[in-house]
């Protein structure tokens, strides 16, 4: 928020505008909708964990412009995302890639499910009915259940 105060001083350096700003919108609503969908998956690099769809920072505005230009030029979503990752690295996309280095990330939750289910199943398979109480034990249980504990 402090940046906004600074923005007043550098009117030329910063332009505050959200993704929905009518001034930047593409004329074709279908293309605009596609651009907006892409925005949600692109990180504003200088912001704190915001997508360029949410961010009001200048860099986010630049990225939005780039994406809109490419959408207008008829490039596919994959091409646009590749263009962005080539330029800024994997960091720029909000969705991590499906790759070996991200195996733990994508597979971890499901590994927990499989592990848990496996443990549950072995537990269920190995179940052995509790052996019956011996007469002495039964007698003690009977006595214990009848005495007043207080």
């Amino acid at each position: 928020m402090r940046l906004k105060a600074v923005a007043a001083i550098f009117a030329g350096l910063l332009c505050l505008a959200a993704a929905a700003d009518p001034a930047d919108r593409l004329a074709d609503p279908a293309q605009e909708a596609r651009a907006r969908a892409i925005f949600q998956d692109v990180r504003c690099l200088v912001c704190q964990n915001e997508s360029i769809d949410d961010s009001e920072a200048e860099l986010a505005g630049d990225l939005r412009r780039t994406v809109r230009e490419q959408v207008k030029a008829g490039r596919s979503d994959a091409e646009i995302k590749r263009f962005l990752t080539d330029r800024y690295g994997e960091f720029v996309l909000m969705t991590p890639r499906f790759s070996w280095v991200n195996l733990a990330l994508w597979g971890g939750p499901f590994a927990v499910v499989i592990l848990g289910a496996g443990l549950l199943l072995t537990r269920l398979r190995n179940r052995t009915g509790e052996p019956e109480l011996s007469p002495e034990e039964a007698e003690r249980v009977r006595r214990l259940s009848q005495t007043d504990p207080t």
């Binding site: 998956d41 964990n49 997508s51 994997e90 960091f91 996309l93 969705t95 991590p96 890639r97 280095v101």
Partner: peptide, 9 residues
């Protein structure tokens, strides 16, 4: 290498 994990994940 930096990556982002956002809402889509």
């Amino acid at each position: 290498e930096a990556i982002s994990v956002g809402p889509p994940y």
